[in-house]
Amino acid sequence: MANLLTVSNLVTEFGGTKTAPGLRAVNDVSFALEKGRVLGLVGESGSGKSVTGFSIMGLVDRPGKVTGGRIIFDDRDLIGLDPEEMRRLRGKRIAMVFQDPMMTLNPVLRIGTQITEAIQAHDPMTKSAARARARDALGLVGIPSPEERLDAYPHEFSGGMRQRVAIAIAMLHHPDLIIADEPTTALDVTIQSQIIAEFQKMAEISGTAVIWITHDLAIVSRLADDIAVMYAGRLVETGPVEQILGDPRHPYTRGLIQSVPSQNQRGHRLHQIPGMTPSLTRLPGGCSFRTRCGHATEQCHTIPERTDTGTRTYRCFHPVTEGL
């Protein structure tokens, strides 16, 4: 089956000039996504997972800029695509849901306006037709009495309801790909499950592929088909979810899994990865994880190449093999 999205050697830099390279928030990232699959993009804060998402959307904030690599979506390279062409893809074929539902809806525009404008941006139609569709979309994500709620403002909604509205907007045109940037992080646990279920339902209905950006491994294990683990701008390990979570190769992935409280035995100290995520301005040379890694040797001062076993990839000279 042909890949819907193929990202290869993507580099996104902040504040670079022609002569001096900027900070590499995304560094040589490659992954592929098939139609209808769910990819969990996992990593700590600042590892570059959100920037990867925005790079695909073509929405990296200044002074950030995609400076290398290719993003092939449906046989077209999104990098360097004409802005108007890109606009037509956004919301129509690639949609995005953001982390904080309190911030993603415009506070001074009615919910109805914010949905109908998204409809009319891609499908020219009358106001009343767009409104009817907006009402149906709200109903579909489980918002009660959608007709009246169209005239409400975002502040009259709870966080969970707002995220439902954002999902409704993202799903309006049945996109081929949704990038979900930690859409449940800001929500209560009970609401989280509802939103995840909502997502699964919607993605299933329209056969949408999902890139689920998160730092929560528990969510990924429930939701994703594949996992890509990101550390300091690089993908350190990718592969099917059972393989990665059950038998990680990269020491960082291993540390991440062991840090999940449920993985630890009661009464024992929680497992931690020693040290902290290095700042992008002070990355160690070679493998970025080597300063925190128990397996690091002299060899790790050069950047390990990607090892591709056919089903999974990892970047490490000393892959862990003993399992968890």
Partner: peptide, 20 residues
């Protein structure tokens, strides 16, 4: 974020600036 989200919806730049 809501400006970014408006762009992510595929709105035209004019709509983003003059409405949002």
């Amino acid at each position: 974020d809501y400006v970014k989200f408006a762009r992510a919806k595929g709105l035209s730049e004019n709509r983003v600036i003059y409405t949002h």
